[in-house]
């Protein structure tokens, strides 16, 4: 059996804000194998970005992280701070949304990539570094000469590509993309997505793709996990999860972006009533029950359903899912 690139075991993350514990992630198990792609979807505040922060240990100091985060078999939570820095970038790298803020505005983009290379591999000479910078830029679809430009001279999509190149600088085994296309135009979004797909295929990267837009994940990820209130409520092959979601929340998310040309969604925008739950005051039982269209009144408010098998290689956390009945 090959070792997983990333494995989360019963991960709990609790923020501390104004003296109150805010549970953001409440017991998440995840596995991403080499060259695998996993999409993590959910609305804002569901804890999906917190997972990315926990893996790279980028969370505020007062945050409590419990469970195990195994990056290529090493538990990130038990590493010394110096070792964490080494793991960050060489094993797992992250691409955030909002590329403008992640780049230093007064440094040429090539120098920023070179810095990342040199920090983690001291043996390289200046010339090989420059060559490597050019190579990285070309891999994300930018001409090598653009390394001499400053972030403000690049467009939003180009900056996002630079960030991807920056993430690739140390040849990580895992790339975490946190809403990498959210602020971009459709066409530029398509360009960035295709860069990510090519990289994943050619460089053999494992990819953890985080977004609120389930439809983006369907085509770019092999597996899909949907999060709600700090837990995964459905996981499975992306086609199956997107086309036939078993959890009512996944169903709502999947239908939020209509199939264009499908008469069923014409003039029928579909959404989900209500608001995301307040993490400090989660509903009892299944946290989704106050918004659930198929709530079972005498069960859901008291029964906290955990993930259960829901078909081949699929799991969902809903009372409607189980042995014989069907959604």
């Amino acid at each position: 059996m090959t070792e997983a690139v990333l494995e989360l075991r019963d991960l709990h993350v609790t923020y501390r804000a104004a003296g109150v514990d805010v549970p953001a992630v409440r017991g998440v198990d995840l596995t991403i194998g080499p060259r695998d792609t996993l999409g993590l979807a959910g609305e804002s505040g569901c804890g999906k970005s917190t997972i990315a922060g926990a893996v790279l240990r980028l969370l505020p100091r007062a945050t409590r992280v419990e469970g195990e985060i195994l990056l290529e078999g090493q538990d990130v939570l038990k590493l010394r701070p110096g070792k964490v820095r080494a793991v960050r970038w060489t094993t797992a790298a992250i691409v955030f949304q909002g590329a403008l803020h992640s780049l230093n505005p007064v440094q040429r983009v090539g120098d920023q990539i070179a810095e990342a290379i040199e920090t983690h591999a001291r043996t390289r000479s200046r010339r090989t570094t420059t060559a490597r910078v050019g190579e990285l830029l070309e891999r994300v679809g930018l001409p090598a000469r653009r390394r001499r430009e400053y972030p403000h001279q690049l467009s939003g999509g180009q900056r996002q590509r630079v960030l991807i190149a920056l993430a690739l600088a140390c040849e990580p085994a895992l790339l975490i993309a946190d809403e990498p296309t959210t602020a971009l135009d459709v066409m530029v979004q398509a360009q960035v997505l295709s860069v990510l797909e090519d990289l994943q295929r050619d460089a053999g990267l494992a990819l953890l793709f985080i977004t609120h837009d389930l439809s983006v994940l369907r085509s770019s990820c092999r597996r899909l996990a949907v999060m709600y209130a700090g837990r995964i409520v459905e996981e499975g092959p992306s086609g199956a999860v997107f086309d036939e979601p078993r959890h009512p929340y996944a169903r709502a998310l999947a239908s939020a972006f209509p199939t264009i040309g499908d008469p069923a969604s014409r003039y029928r925008p579909s959404g989900l009533a209500g608001d995301p739950p307040d993490p400090t005051a989660l509903p009892t039982g299944c946290p989704f029950h106050p918004r659930c269209p198929v709530v079972v009144d005498d069960v859901c408010p008291s029964l906290d359903v955990r993930l259960r098998p829901a078909g081949p290689a699929r799991e969902a956390a809903c009372v409607h899912v189980g042995g014989d009945d069907d959604g």
């Binding site: 804002s44 609120h212 998310l253 939020a256 925008p269 579909s270 959404g271 989900l272 009533a273 995301p276």
Partner: peptide, 14 residues
Amino acid sequence: LDASIRGEILALMR
């Protein structure tokens, strides 16, 4: 807006 809220607002507008 979040994906889940999107449809609600569009339904309201329609």
